[in-house]
Design a protein around this nucleic acid. Sequence first.
DNA 1: TTAAGTGCGACCGATACGATCGGAGATCAT
DNA 2: ATGATCTCCGATCGTATCGGTCGCACTTAA
Lengths: 157, 157
Amino acid sequence: MLKLSKKADYALMALQHIASVQPGDVTPGRVVNTKEIAEEYNIPLELLAKVLQTLSKNGMIESHNGPKGGYLLARSARHITIAQILESIEGPLGLTDCSHERSGELCMQREHCNIRTPLLKIQDSIYQLLNNMTLQDMLSGTPLITIQSPSAEGVTR
Amino acid sequence: MLKLSKKADYALMALQHIASVQPGDVTPGRVVNTKEIAEEYNIPLELLAKVLQTLSKNGMIESHNGPKGGYLLARSARHITIAQILESIEGPLGLTDCSHERSGELCMQREHCNIRTPLLKIQDSIYQLLNNMTLQDMLSGTPLITIQSPSAEGVTR
DNA sequence: TTAAGTGCGACCGATACGATCGGAGATCAT
DNA sequence: ATGATCTCCGATCGTATCGGTCGCACTTAA
Ligand code: FES
Ligand code: FES
C-alpha cells in the first residue's frame, strides 16, 4: 500500500545523482545528461527522459540543450524537499479522491462521511514529513525524523 | 499521489461505523450487517461485502452468519490501529517495490541505489504514524499527531 | 423448512501506469 | 554554414491493477 510510482522513484534517484555531482551549495558543478543516469541505475532511457523533462518543467532542475548539454539543479539541494519532487511527478498528495475537492463537486454525502477529518489530519502529517526532508538530507544520509503521538503506546524512540 | 484505494476507504468507513455502535470497551453491542453500512454511506453492496470478508479474515472483525447475522469488532477499538486496517486491505506498506525484498530477489543493482535507505526511513515514519492512531482515536476525533524534524525550516507548528 | 445473511470465486470494463517511438528544436564544434 | 549531438515534446501501445458485478454454496435463527 501507499506505493509510489516508478517514475517517482526514478525522479528521486536522478535528483540524488545530479545533486551528488554538484558539490558545493552554490557551485554550478558539471552538467549530467540523461544517458549517464539511465546507465548508472538501469533505468529505461526514454522514460527517464520524460521524468527529467517534467522535473525541469516544474522548476526542480535546469536543462541545457545541445552537445555537452544536460541537467543541473535549479536551486540548492537544501531547498528542494522530497514533497516537492514527488508532487512534481505524481501530482498533489491526497489519501482520498476527495481530498482537494473544489467547492462544487461532492463525495458520497460528505455529511455522512465519518473518516474525512481524521484522514485529512493523517495526510497533513505525512506532508509535513515529506516537506521537512530535503534532497540534501538524502545526500548526507541522516534524515532522523521522529514522530510523537499522544496515543499512549510509545512505539517511537 | 499516495492515494489509497477505494476499498481501503470503505474499510475505514465500515469499521468506524461498526465501532460507533459498539459503545463500551467490552460491551458486545449489536451486530451490523453489510446492507446497513452500504446504504448509510452509499457504498456498492457487493464490494463492501468483499471488503468486510477480508477484514474478518484478517481478524479485524467477527462475522455471524444467518439471519440477524452481521459483523462486530473482534477486539476493542482502542487496539485496532489504522495501519492494521489498511494493511489488511492493501497489503504491507511499501513506498517502493523493493521495500520488503526477501533475500533472494534483487532490485536494479541495489549497490548503486542511492535512495533505498532514506526511503525506508520515511516509510518507517509513516508506519509509526499510522500505527499510533487507533480506531478509537478516529471516533473521539482528536488524533493530534505532531511531527518533529531537525531540518531547520520549521514548517510544523 | 425457509428466509436472511455471510463466504467465496470467477468475471468484466475502465483507467492508470510503464514503456516506446518519431520527430522537432537548440546548441556547440568544426 | 554545416553537421552532429542532445534535449524537448507529443502520440501511442500493452498490460496490470482496481472498481464493480454476478452467481452460488454455506450457515443459522425463526
Ligand atoms: S470519503 Fe470523501 S468526504 Fe469522506
Ligand atoms: S529502488 Fe530498489 S534498492 Fe533502490
